[in-house]
Amino acid sequence: MNPKLKTHDTDLLCEAILSLQTVDECYAFLEDILTISELQSIAQRLAVARMLDEGQTYDDIEKVTGASSATISRVKRCLSFGADGYRIVLDRTKK
């Protein structure tokens, strides 16, 4: 984890997220704290990460998600060299 991100406020945000117990509670919280555009962007990045993890091509990912090649590249860099946040979520939510 990047120590520059760790503050009292970000700790509280993480604790708030961890306190949510249902998908509906999560939707309600995210709808209150994010704009629709921010929520869609975050969801798109997770979809891109899942597709990259499955070995899909940039072209396929662009067609399915509408993500730009810059977004796909950024997510791929996080998967390869990031803090493993995507990896944790992808491994725990594999179906």
Score class of each variant (00 low, 15 high):
Glu38Gly: 05
Val23Asn: 09
Ser73Pro: 00
Asp59Glu: 14
Phe29Arg: 01
Asp84Ala: 15
Val89Leu: 15
Val75Gly: 01
Thr22Gln: 04
Thr10Cys: 08
Thr7Ile: 06
Ala16Arg: 12
Gln44Lys: 15
Leu18Thr: 08
Leu30Cys: 12
Glu31Gln: 10
Lys95Ala: 11
Val48Cys: 01
Asp84Trp: 03
Glu54Lys: 14
Gln56Arg: 14
Thr10Asp: 07
Ser37Met: 06
Lys94Ile: 07
Ala47Thr: 07
Leu20Glu: 04
Ala67Arg: 02
Lys63Gln: 11
Glu38Cys: 05
Arg45Tyr: 05
Tyr58Gly: 00
Gln40Trp: 00
Ala70Thr: 10
Glu25Gln: 15
Ala16Cys: 12
Leu13Gln: 08
Ser37Arg: 13
Lys63Ala: 12
Leu30Ser: 08
Phe29Asn: 03
Phe29Lys: 03
Leu5Ser: 11
Cys78Asp: 11
Asn2Cys: 04
Asp11Thr: 14
Leu90Gln: 04
Ile42Met: 15
Lys4Phe: 11
Arg50Lys: 14
Leu79Thr: 01
Arg92Lys: 14
Lys76Gln: 14
Asp53Ala: 14
Glu25Cys: 06
Arg74Pro: 02
Asp11Asn: 11
Gln44His: 06
Glu25Ser: 10
Val48Asn: 02
Cys78Ala: 14
Thr93Leu: 15
Glu25Leu: 04
Ala47Asn: 09
Lys94Thr: 06
Ala47Met: 06
Leu46Pro: 00
Ile17Thr: 07
Ala43Arg: 06
Ser37Glu: 15
Arg87Tyr: 02
Ile36Cys: 02
Gln56Ser: 11
Tyr27Thr: 02
Ser69Pro: 05
Ala47Gln: 11
Ala83Ile: 02
Ile61Asn: 01
Ser69Lys: 14
Ile36Tyr: 02
Ile61Phe: 03
Ser69Tyr: 07
Pro3Asn: 13
Asp53His: 13
Asp24Ser: 13
Met1Ile: 10
Leu13Gly: 06
Arg50Ile: 06
Thr7Phe: 07
Leu79Val: 05
Tyr27Asn: 10
Val64His: 01
Ala83Lys: 09
Asp9Ser: 15
Ala28Tyr: 11
Leu5Glu: 10
Ala43Asp: 05
Leu52Asp: 00
Arg77Asn: 13
Gln40His: 10
Lys4Val: 07
Lys76His: 13
Lys63Phe: 03
Ala16Phe: 00
Cys26Gly: 08
Ala49Leu: 04
Leu13Glu: 08
Asp84Cys: 12
Ile61Leu: 03
Lys4Ser: 12
Gln21Thr: 09
Val48Ile: 08
Ala16Ser: 15
Met51Val: 00
Ala16Gly: 08
Glu25Tyr: 06
Gln44Glu: 10
Ile36Trp: 00
Arg92Asn: 13
Leu90Tyr: 04
Leu18Cys: 13
Lys6Thr: 13
Gln44Phe: 00
Gly55Ile: 05
Val89Ala: 15
Ile88His: 10
Asp9Glu: 15
Thr93His: 09
Arg74Ser: 12
Phe29Ser: 02
Ala70His: 05
Ile88Asn: 09
Thr22His: 05
Arg45Cys: 03
Leu90Arg: 05
Ser73Glu: 04
Leu18Gln: 12
Val23Gly: 07
Glu25Pro: 04
Thr35Asp: 04
Ile17Tyr: 03
Thr93Tyr: 09
Thr57Ala: 07
Gln40Asp: 13
Asp59Gly: 04
Val48Gln: 02
Ser68Glu: 05
Tyr27Lys: 11
Ser80Leu: 14
Lys94Met: 07
Asp84Ile: 02
